[in-house]
Amino acid sequence: MKKSCIISHYCQIRDHAVIGDDETLYERCGADLSDFFTGIYQHFDISYPKFYKMDNLCKLGFLSVELLLMDRNIQQRYAGHEVGIILMNASSSLDNDRHHQQTILDRSAYFPSPAVFVYTLPNIVIGEICIRHKFTGEGTFFVRERFDPLFLFNYVNQLFYQDVVQCCIAGWVETLGDYYDSTVYLIEKTGKPDAGITIFEPDTIKHIFAKEK
């Protein structure tokens, strides 16, 4: 039996708040989704102008992982190809698909935008995160009706077991219209004993996902 991995950190963006490892890092009620995301970006002093070009799914995934990895020195501790990103959601890129569809509804004003079209694939969020953090490892985007902690556990666990990854970011990144909900967590083989470490298993993922601020 191989040693279990650990969840070294997690980050959650939902209900107008950002939670990192059980702590509320940022809260802003009443803002619409776009202002809320921009608020997070500015609050944490993130300097990455490409953020403004992203669609909402990418913004949500980008911010979640940005805060998950802040000051964790992942790039120093792992080679790029050792870090995997396995994400899941329900609506794929439908939120931005609607946006692209708007540009082609009217034949007399038919101006499809390449900057919109490129985001009509859910895995672009993985690409954006990889570019930002220089990760060149395994990446897969799954779609299921609901968050599936058991499947995500099993899949990521076998990636570790088969030495495909040494470190993995996994979770749920969903946005559609005004709705947004993300939970991402960092899985490693070992961690510092002082950190709030939890064993990587389906129940702990379930527990993290079910948290409310």
Binding site: P49, K50, F111, P112, S113, P114, A115, V118
Partner: peptide
């Protein structure tokens, strides 16, 4: 400005639109 190939295509759309 740190523009890339998508930006170039987008400017092409801008001129047309």
């Amino acid at each position: 400005l740190g523009l890339d190939s998508i930006d170039a295509l987008e400017l092409t759309v801008l001129l047309e639109k």
